[in-house]
């Protein structure tokens, strides 16, 4: 059966998400050069993972195949992004 998680955990996750939002907003004032987008996307990925794992219950899913579905989704997205970028980053004339 499905697992029931406590409200306390949800509030904790929510608090972390709010803090990370504040942090990424504050960091956007700091010019870190090429690192700025990296840091911003890293924080976004942490936030996204928290949402998927806890709010969307991916951490508690009893069906292993659903985990496979989630992984497949992100894997195929990365195929789209990375394989297309092999073209853009190696074009001699641009």
């Amino acid at each position: 059966m499905e697992k029931v998680i406590s409200a306390k955990l949800y509030f904790t996750v929510w608090a972390i998400l709010m803090c990370l939002t504040a942090a990424t907003a504050a960091l956007s004032y700091v010019n870190m050069g090429a690192l700025s987008p990296v840091v911003a996307l890293l924080i976004a990925t942490v936030k996204g993972s928290l949402v998927v794992l806890f709010f969307m219950h991916a951490k508690y899913i009893d069906v292993k195949t659903t985990v496979l579905v989630i992984v497949a989704g992100f894997f195929w997205l990365s195929i789209l992004l990375l394989m297309t970028m092999t073209d853009y980053i190696t074009r001699a004339w641009s």
């Binding site: 907003a25 956007s28 010019n31």
Partner: peptide, 8 residues
């Protein structure tokens, strides 16, 4: 956020 720091 990606271009924000130039203003700040």
């Amino acid at each position: 956020l990606i271009g924000h720091h130039h203003v700040g």
